[in-house]
């Protein structure tokens, strides 16, 4: 039973990732990514990481994917969503991907991890302890980073600072 559910979730993950990679429409790619992210949250639950799974859904689905969809809708507005790269074509991409895949399989074969039937454990309290004891410095650095990020993103989109320059001879380049 557990294996069956695992296989289903893994299949959904792979499907989502492949849709992201091979779909020609950007909105379909984004939705494939959404599927993959949710399925990866399911995999986290298999690995007894409930807090990380919920964070994954909260941040990716509720935050990142909404932002990405916003970006897609604001910039392409429904059209111009077919955008594969003709210069960096599929052949070199496939080559590089294959190299990375072989490398990964080599690493897996030499990982030395063994079969393990772990029980489900509640992790929230322990993660809290780890974040505020061992990893307090990175934690604080992340918070500083986020403050910088909020201010930076705000500044970057302020109207006065965007230098409105003439678009390179396009019909729609009014603004």
């Amino acid at each position: 039973m557990k294996d069956g559910i695992f296989l289903c979730i893994a299949a959904v993950t792979v499907f989502g990732a492949l849709v992201t990679a091979f779909s020609r429409s950007i909105i379909n790619a984004a939705l494939g990514l959404l599927l993959a992210l949710v399925a990866i949250a399911g995999l986290y639950i298999f690995l007894s990481a409930d807090f990380v799974a919920v964070s994954q859904i909260l941040i990716y689905v509720g935050g990142v994917m909404v932002l990405l969809l916003f970006g897609i809708m604001l910039t392409s507005g429904g059209d111009n969503i077919f955008s594969n790269n003709p210069i960096m074509g599929a052949v070199p991409a496939t080559l590089i991907t294959t190299i990375f895949g072989l490398l990964g399989i080599y690493v897996v074969n030499t990982s030395g991890l063994t079969f393990y039937q772990g029980a489900y454990r509640a992790t929230t309290r322990d993660i809290g302890h780890f974040l505020l004891r061992e990893y307090i410095l990175p934690f604080e650095l992340v918070s500083v980073l986020i403050v910088v990020l909020i201010v930076g993103a705000g500044v970057m989109l302020r109207k006065e600072l965007v230098i409105v320059r003439q678009a390179p001879q396009k019909k729609e380049g009014k603004k």
Partner: peptide, 14 residues
């Protein structure tokens, strides 16, 4: 669920 209220906030994002 051990993640309770956090889970609720997450699911609302769907």
């Amino acid at each position: 669920l051990d993640t309770g209220i956090f889970y609720v906030l997450a699911m609302a994002s769907f």
